[in-house]
Structure formats: C-alpha cells, structure tokens
Nucleic acid binder design. Structure first.
Length: 109
DNA sequence: CACGTGACTAAGA
DNA sequence: GTCTTAGCCACGT
C-alpha cells in the first residue's frame, strides 16, 4: 500500500477499520501495532478527526476500557449505544468483560 | 521554526 | 484504592 504517503492518522484509521464487530481495542494497542507504542495519545488525537472517515471510533477506548472519548460523539450516550448494539455491555462508560472483548491488532492481525 | 494541544499510559504519593 | 504528576509524540497554527 502507499501507506508511506499516508500520515500517522491515516494509518490509525486503517487499523481501526479492521476492528472486528463486537470487539474493542485500546489506543495504545493500535499505536504499538504501528510501531509507535509511545504515541497512544496521537492515536486518540487521530480519532478526533475520525468523524471525517468511516472509522468505528466507538470500538476504540482507553486502556481501562473506559469510554473516555464519548464526549466527542453526538449526544451524550451515542458511543455507549453503538457498543451495546454490538453486544458489548457498557456500564457507566466502562466496558464490561473488557479483557475478553479486547482485540489486539499485534496478535490478531 | 517554535509552541500548544490532547479520545493516552505508567508510575508515584 | 484513588488522585496527581510527568513523559510521550504527531499535528495544526
């Protein structure tokens, strides 16, 4: 792929799009897969523009399985609703059974 | 070119 | 166990 012409953001989007249905991952996991484990913040930063792409940003949460970015979605509970519609149990902005639903691109991809 | 920003993470108190 | 601090780095201005 012409990934070298793509910025870091584009790479993040490519990975995020590959997140399986009903699964979730963390910013750090994506960053690690991209070879920039210390750029977890940049991944989150990229998701800030994810609204311009067809990226399932609701499947990307922080390392604790907390929906830290829900405020960036429309409304107040859209992110949680999207996750629940995929069979993911979310309580108080926190994903239940996070370890089980966790999808590590470095291992699965 | 330099500064500020942030949807993170790990470590310390 | 919860809160605070510091390090981190790509991107926009």
């Amino acid at each position: 792929m012409t990934s070298e012409t793509l910025g870091f953001f584009e790479k993040v989007y490519e990975v995020a799009k590959q997140i399986p249905y009903g699964r979730v991952t963390s910013y750090g996991a994506i960053a690690k897969y991209l070879g920039a484990a210390r750029s977890a913040r940049i991944v989150g930063y990229a998701m800030n523009n994810s609204h311009t792409k067809e990226v399932p940003a609701h499947r990307v949460v922080n390392r604790k399985g907390l929906l830290t970015g829900k405020h960036h979605f429309e409304g107040t509970n859209l992110m949680q609703q999207l996750l629940e519609s995929e069979g993911i149990e979310v309580i108080e902005n926190q994903i239940q059974n996070f370890e089980t639903l966790f999808w590590d691109p470095s291992k699965e991809l």
